[in-house]
Design a protein around this nucleic acid. Structure first.
Length: 769
DNA sequence: CATTAGAATAACACC
DNA sequence: TATTCTAATG
């Protein structure tokens, strides 16, 4: 280590040498921790203990007295990573480590900074943060206002383009002329108009949180200097995922002292689609001359076969920085590979495999359910697993699915809260003026909008004016009156500092929103009401509504953890940074993984890195599988095994041949209906496909089901019968179709269930979960 | 203005 | 298949 010459502060010198955070670090990690001054690039392969090194480094900085906790900027990409780092620092340092206000995601830190200088960006400090949904609606308005047919130029596309610009730190005035060609050359103007609208509404979208900061830093030297002075040390996690805006932001902040430590792995760069630039990591040394590059290559996570399989796949990529991961762990099991006839079969097989892992199999110790994960390429693959696991009563948890805060009822409720906090929130106003129905339709809304625009008022103000001028009349008027009075009342309550939890409940009840769902007889209404209750409960953890709203805007990753032992189901993207003793990687088919898009557009390398990320999540058990047929939008489609399967080094892979797809236990528990088998035949040409032959040449022989469609021997339940289901509890049978029944469960709502999993039962109430 | 049936359309990954 | 949008009807 060369930095012993750097003078230590008096406080540090007084400390005993023993430093618990340095214990058990390997030489590379230790180097990364001790090289505190100057730029450092830590190239940390999967499972090499980079979080450990990062947290130890923070501990080192603090313990040596180089900086106090609030003088360290530590950026992560996910809230989960931030939380973990915070916990681990606290564990290393005790109380001293707890107060790290500048440890968080880029976005969370961006807002915090922006709040202090909002006026410099043309905003007021209380600005609201729009989510994707609001963003799209606003863009749609801008498009329409520009007199463009929204069908020709969909808001989604514009949003993509603008996000792309924001990722690259391009404000409307900086968009290069050549880029404006899309949208008939109107995109730049629409971008400017959109930004204008945001400012009028006192709003930011996600990209703005950083972009505004950046603009302020660029134009106000004094402000930049202030933050440069504050952040004496900077640490960045997942550096390979930074986009240009983030990169510039970091570079500005680190410019003065160069005390920046970036940790990343070019092989795990999987966010190119949202603007991440692997180039950032590749040019670090150029940006920060004299940077020390430290490689962490000892892997503590995966057994050799798993590591070798992952390395084999990633080796096909070009332009890597290159790392050689090694491990001292016992050899362990080979990676397993298995082909299935279709997606349902795959889910069925994995379900059974999980059950035998639980019991302990092949001389392996039993796995707990929370040690097992299924990692899929795309969200829609999850359904097959959910269906299957529900059917066999296997507890599971979905991470990253439809998020709590994105549900309709939650967003509606939040719109009400936003109105209470700031009655001028037009987007919120629009969302709920007529929800529940108040007799206000498109026409009334248009009147309100034009009145508002004519007087330069918010929509709420415009509505007042329209009422006063009798431009809105009839039964809509009464409803609107009540709505406006409500907003005024709630806003007063907020200003008066009323208890926000009670207020929230009052708002939901007063507005008639709760009543709306209570009156709703559809099966999901009950669930929605429960969600609303949960929402109100969640408020208790915050000081006020404002704080809550901001929190929600930034918490996009939901780890609704808890709830005992469960199998984890998530996307490969969501899995980055996690590890599991046992991992299933289903759906390795060309077109799905690698995705069709990447195959068309040449994004295969990123896709391959995703495969690498997937395999390296596994500690000691890893199964890759593919299905020959998959149902897409209700249509059966044949697929070839993924080209990545060819890249798996054969000596580290054990090919499993399914024990007769419909023999054995599987057949007894879930016989497919005749129609399903017929449809399956449509995929038979898979056998002549190059992919299939490729596999056979390697000794892989996925079996097709050769079995006549057999009659459903199960006596179906009659419509109206009372039944019991292991997972859903008691319910009443509705339509019956073959061996599938539509059952309206007393508590779980309406579901389609296979008759085998139902038993006759009469009881109402009591759901044994 | 609300309701409804039928058509169009959708799906890659996320802070 | 499941949701969302549109036009037609009450």
């Amino acid at each position: 280590m060369t930095d012993t010459a750097i003078p230590l502060s008096t406080r540090a010198a007084a400390r005993p040498v023993a430093a618990p955070w340095l214990a058990d670090l390997n030489p590379a990690q230790r180097q990364a921790v001790e090289a505190v001054e100057g730029p450092v690039l830590m190239l940390a392969g999967a499972g090499t203990g980079k979080t450990r090194a990062l947290t130890a480094r923070i501990a080192q900085i603090i313990a040596l007295g180089r900086a106090r906790p609030h003088e360290i900027l530590a950026v992560t990409f996910t809230n989960r990573a931030a939380r973990e780092m915070r916990d681990r620092v606290a564990r290393l340092l005790g109380e001293v480590g707890e107060g790290m206000p500048w440890l968080g995601t880029f976005h969370a830190i961006g807002v915090k900074i922006l709040r202090r200088h909002a006026e410099l960006a043309g905003l007021k400090s209380g600005f609201t943060i729009l989510d994707t949904d609001d963003q799209l609606r606003l863009m749609k308005q801008v498009i329409i206002a520009a007199g463009i047919d929204e069908k020709r130029l969909p808001a989604r596309l514009l949003a993509q383009i603008i996000d792309g610009w924001k990722n690259r730190a391009l404000t409307p005035d900086r968009v290069p002329g050549a880029e404006g060609a899309e949208f008939e050359g109107r995109a730049p103007a629409l971008y400017a108009a959109y930004q204008q609208r945001l400012r009028e509404l006192n709003c930011c979208d996600f990209g703005d949180l950083l972009l505004h900061c950046l603009t302020i830093f660029r134009t106000h030297e004094d402000v930049l200097a202030e933050w440069q002075r504050r952040f004496r040390y900077i640490l960045v996690d997942e550096y390979q995922d930074t986009n240009v805006a983030q990169y510039l932001w970091l570079r500005l902040l680190a410019q003065a002292h160069h005390n920046i430590c970036c940790v990343g792995d070019d092989d795990q760069s999987i966010y190119g689609w949202r603007g991440a630039e692997v180039g950032n990591i590749l040019r670090f040394e150029k940006d920060f001359p004299g940077a020390r590059v430290i490689r962490l290559e000892q892997n503590y996570r995966s057994t050799p076969h798993i590591l070798a399989a992952a390395s084999g796949v990633i080796a096909a990529n070009r332009g890597r920085l290159g790392k050689t991961l090694w491990t001292e762990l016992e050899e362990g099991e080979k990676v397993r590979l298995i082909g299935h006839w279709d997606g349902e079969e795959e889910a069925r097989w994995i379900g059974e495999e999980i059950e035998s892992l639980q019991r302990g199999t092949r001389g392996m110790d039993p796995f707990g359910l929370d040690q097992i994960a299924i990692l899929v390429r795309a969200g829609h693959q999850m359904r097959a697993f959910e269906d299957r696991f529900l059917a066999i009563g296997l507890p599971y948890r979905v991470i990253g699915g439809p998020r709590f805060y994105e549900r309709q009822e939650i967003r509606d409720a939040m719109a009400y809260f936003r109105l209470a906090v700031s009655p001028g929130d037009d987007l919120a106003f629009e969302r709920v003026v007529n929800l529940p129905r108040r007799g206000l339709g498109e026409k009334a809304l248009q009147t309100i909008q034009s009145t508002a625009r004519a007087h330069g008022l918010s929509l709420a103000g415009g509505a007042e004016a329209a009422l006063a001028g009798r431009k809105v009349a009839g039964k809509g008027a009464a409803g609107l009156r009540a709505f406006l009075d409500g907003i005024a009342r709630w806003h007063d309550a907020v200003l008066a500092g009323a208890n926000h939890v009670e207020l929230a409940q009052v708002i939901l009840d007063d507005s008639g929103y709760t009543a709306m769902w209570q009156a709703d007889r559809s099966p999901e209404a009950e669930g929605r009401l429960e969600n609303l209750k949960e929402l109100v409960k969640a408020l208790e953890e915050f000081d006020n509504l404002q704080g809550f709203l901001e929190h929600v805007a930034l918490i996009m990753d939901n780890d609704s953890g808890q709830g005992g032992e469960r199998v984890t189901l998530m996307t490969l993207h969501a899995a980055k940074g996690l590890e599991f003793p046992a991992v299933f990687l289903p759906g390795w088919e060309d077109g799905l993984f690698p995705s069709q898009r990447s195959m068309d557009a040449g994004g295969l390398e990123e896709e391959r890195r995703l495969a690498y990320v997937g395999i390296t999540r596994a500690e000691r058990f890893c199964v890759i599988s593919f299905a020959g047929n998959r149902r897409i939008w209700g249509q059966w489609q044949a697929a070839l095994p993924s080209r990545f399967i060819d890249e798996l080094p054969p000596e580290h892979v054990e090919v499993l041949t399914p024990p007769g797809l419909y023999g054995g236990r599987a057949a007894a528990s879930a016989a497919p209906s005749a129609s399903v088998v017929e449809e399956r035949a449509a995929g038979a040409d898979v056998y002549n496909s190059p992919g299939w032959k490729r596999l056979q040449s390697r000794g892989i022989h996925p079996q097709a089901p050769v079995r006549p469609a057999k009659r459903d021997e199960e006596p179906a339940f009659a419509t109206g019968a009372r039944v019991f289901h292991q997972k859903y509890g008691y319910g009443t049978v509705g339509a019956v179709e073959g061996n599938k029944c539509d059952v309206t469960f007393d508590h779980a709502g309406e579901k389609k269930v296979i008759a085998t999993y139902l038993v006759a039962g009469a009881q109402a109430g009591d759901v044994p979960f």
